[in-house]
C-alpha cells in the first residue's frame, strides 16, 4: 500500500526507515532517539529494526554529536543527527558554521559531508523557553549549508529522503507544530527535490511567500481573502538554501504584490532577504512595497503570550489590505 493517511512525524519516520533500508551507511543518532524513539517519536522503532549500531543514543552534548557526525561522514557514513529542539542546537553552532559548512570548500571538494542535521523548530506548541526558536536565518546566512523546511506531509518524506541522499550537509528544519497534522500521501510519488519552491495556490492579485510552519497559515489566509473577492498565490519555499529565485519571482511578477510570512524575528532574517532579493529582481513589476508578517524582534515569548508573536491569519489579511490597492 503506498497511499496512506499519515502525520508529518510518521512521514519523517518512514523516510528515515526507507533511507536506512536503502543504504547501510545511513546512521541515525542523537539524544533519546534510541529506545524512546525521540521526544517527538520521529525515530520510533529504528533501533529495534536496524540495531544499536545504526540508530543510537549519544552522550548529551550537541557539539559532540555534530562533530562526531562530521568524522563519520568523512569516513564513508551518512549520518543523520537530531538536535532535540532548535535552541539546543546552539552548542553545535561552532561545528556547524566552522566545519560542516566549510569542510567541502576548505578541501576543494576532497572531503564532502553527506550528513543531515534534523531540528524540530519554531513555535505554536505552547513550549516553554528554549523550545520554540526559529533559528533558520543563522544557518541560511552560512555559506556551504543547504537549509530545508518542509510544510506538508508529502514534502517531509520526499525532502528528507533527498536530504539524506545529497552528498552535501543539510540543515533540516522540521516545523514541530505540523508534526501531528495528517495528510493522505503517496510515498512513491516523488515531490520536487531540494531547491525547488512550489506554488501551493494560484491567484492573480497578490503572492504570499512562506516556508515551514507559516505555509498552512498563508493558505488559510488565502482562503479567507478569496471569500472576500481577492485571489492570492501562495508560494511554499520548501528549501531556503538553495533559494528558488525563479519560482518566487515569477509568482510575484504575475501578481505585482507580495507579503512574506515567517515566524522568525524579522530583523536581518530570511524574510528580510526575500524582500531584498525580490525587490532587486522584480522592482518594475511591483505595485506596492513588499510587506512582511514576521515574529517581532523579541525572544520567543512564553506559552501564554505566544499568540501575539505568531503570524496569524488576521495579521496577514491586514498586510494584504495594506498593499496600496487604491493605486491600481
Amino acid at each position: 500500500m503506498t497511499h496512506m493517511k499519515i502525520s508529518m512525524a510518521q512521514a519523517l519516520n518512514q523516510a528515515l526507515r526507507d533511507a536506512m533500508k536503502a543504504d547501510d551507511t545511513v546512521l541515525m543518532f542523537g539524544e533519546d532517539v534510541g529506545a524512546l524513539g525521540g521526544v517527538f517519536r520521529i525515530t520510533d522503532g529504528l533501533t529495534e529494526e536496524f540495531g544499536e549500531d545504526r540508530c543510537f543514543d549519544t552522550p548529551l552534548a550537541e557539539s559532540g554529536i555534530v562533530g562526531m557526525a562530521v568524522g563519520l561522514a568523512m569516513n564513508g557514513m551518512r549520518p543523520v543527527v537530531e538536535m532535540q529542539f532548535d535552541a539546543f542546537g546552539y552548542p553545535a553552532f561552532e561545528q556547524i558554521v566552522s566545519h560542516v559548512a566549510k569542510m567541502r570548500n576548505r578541501t576543494r571538494g576532497k572531503i564532502t559531508l553527506p550528513m543531515v542535521i534534523r531540528m524540530p523548530y519554531a513555535g505554536g506548541i505552547g513550549g516553554v523557553e528554549h523550545h520554540c526558536d526559529s533559528s533558520e536565518s543563522y544557518y541560511a546566512h552560512t555559506p556551504g549549508l543547504t537549509v530545508v523546511a518542509p510544510a506538508t506531509v508529502a514534502d517531509a518524506y520526499t525532502l528528507l529522503r533527498r536530504a539524506i541522499e545529497l552528498p552535501d550537509p543539510v540543515v533540516f528544519m522540521e516545523p514541530k507544530k505540523l508534526y501531528w497534522a495528517k495528510e493522505e500521501i503517496d510515498l512513491t510519488e516523488g515531490q520536487p527535490g531540494i531547491g525547488t519552491a512550489v506554488v501551493r495556490r494560484e491567484g492573480a492579485d497578490a503572492t504570499l511567500i512562506a516556508y515551514g510552519p507559516t505555509v498552512p497559515v498563508a493558505l488559510e489566509a488565502a482562503e479567507v481573502v478569496a471569500a472576500e473577492g481577492r485571489q492570492l498565490s501562495v508560494v511554499d519555499l520548501r528549501s531556503i538554501v538553495p533559494f528558488d529565485d525563479e519560482t518566487v519571482c515569477a509568482a510575484v511578477r504575475r501578481t505585482g504584490r507580495a507579503v512574506v510570512v515567517a515566524e522568525a524575528s524579522g530583523f536581518a532574517s530570511v524574510s528580510s532577504e526575500i524582500v531584498a532579493r525580490v525587490t532587486e529582481r522584480c522592482f518594475h513589476s511591483l505595485a506596492a512595497p513588499i510587506r512582511r508578517v514576521t515574529g517581532f524582534d523579541i525572544p520567543y515569548p512564553p506559552p501564554k503570550l505566544e499568540k501575539y508573536q505568531l503570524p496569524g491569519v488576521d495579521r496577514i489579511l491586514d498586510a494584504v489590505d495594506d498593499l496600496q490597492w487604491e493605486d491600481s
Binding site: S63, G64, V66, G67, M68, A69, V70, G71, L72, A73, M74, N75, G76, M77, P79, E94, Q95, S98, H99
Partner: peptide, 13 residues
C-alpha cells in the same frame, strides 16, 4: 573542534 571529528572517523572505522 577536530577532536570530535577524530572520534567520528574512528567510530566509522
Amino acid at each position: 573542534t577536530q577532536l570530535t571529528h577524530a572520534v567520528g572517523v574512528a567510530h566509522a572505522a
